[in-house]
């Protein structure tokens, strides 16, 4: 039995509310964690380990110093990835189903629980959901964020006293950057912009290259939900790991050093 068949069999056996509850739990926890970082963690941004490794939590990258003591530098950054996720086509499906029950699931009994009256349903034609149409602009911002995250991960491999090292923290940041990259560059808007908007690839010079890029993005896009969740967990995990290192609750092992 294939993995898809097993997943489908499990999904059919689970009650319709199992999916929405799991998504509500995960997204609520993530939202509270992000709010905690923004409003209660104004200092925990950069840190140098005793081994001379410089770290910057992914919640604060690229680092923009806050002019006020009480305001976290994360405020200047987090709106981009949060906006990117909030307007993402996958997350839209997830929160329309889980938070707004619009519909909560596809079965007849689940759809009968949809609370909205037919006359008040406007979908994405009116505020606030019409603003989801600016998703591509959050994508542009996310490219900058992911680029900085990749740079931060690589910089963490070069201790201040010279040489090259691979500490566990840098590896975690690198995996996080890769997962966020997979999520960002598998975006539906990017898929459209890179080649989906074209009707004819053979009609102009360079069309073949764009088609190849489009197909590559389509491959990433086919697993967009998986990338979305993996990167969501990785960014929280990376932040928690660095906070534990900064608080000296755990040490950051150097996996190898040259």
């Amino acid at each position: 039995m294939s993995l898809a068949a097993i997943t489908s069999a499990i999904n059919r056996r689970l009650p319709w509310w199992a999916g929405p509850i799991a998504i509500v739990t995960a997204l609520t926890l993530f939202t509270f964690y992000s709010l905690w970082v923004v409003f209660f963690q104004s200092h925990a941004a950069t840190y140098q380990t005793p081994e001379g490794i410089n770290y910057l939590s992914p919640f604060y990258s690229p680092y923009i110093p806050s002019p006020w003591e009480w305001l976290s530098p994360a405020v200047f950054i987090l709106w981009i990835p949060l906006g990117f996720r909030a307007t993402c086509y996958y997350y839209r499906k997830a929160y329309y189903r889980a938070f707004f029950w619009d519909p909560p699931a596809c079965s007849d009994d689940a759809q009968r629980k949809e609370p909205r009256e037919p006359e008040s349903y406007r979908g994405e034609r009116a505020a606030p959901w019409i603003f989801n149409n600016i998703h591509r602009y959050f994508f542009y911002g996310s490219i900058i964020i992911v680029t900085f995250l990749a740079i931060e991960a690589v910089l963490a491999m070069f201790p201040v006293d010279g040489g090259f090292a691979l500490p566990l923290g840098a590896l975690i940041l690198l995996i996080n950057a890769i997962l966020l990259g997979g999520y960002t560059f598998g975006c539906h808007s990017f898929r459209h912009l890179i080649g989906g908007r074209l009707d004819c690839y053979s009609c102009f010079k360079g069309g073949g290259a764009l088609r190849k890029l489009y197909k590559g993005v389509s491959k990433l896009n086919a697993r967009h939900a998986t990338w979305a969740w993996a990167s969501l967990f990785s960014v929280v995990f990376a932040d928690i790991y660095l906070r534990l290192v900064i608080a000296q609750i755990i040490s950051d092992p150097i996996l190898f050093r040259i």
Partner: peptide, 15 residues
């Protein structure tokens, strides 16, 4: 067409 009514909850793809 009214595509704005669609909130991409993917039930069509599922069935």
């Amino acid at each position: 067409g009214g595509i704005g009514f669609c909130n991409i909850t993917k039930c069509c793809t599922e069935v």
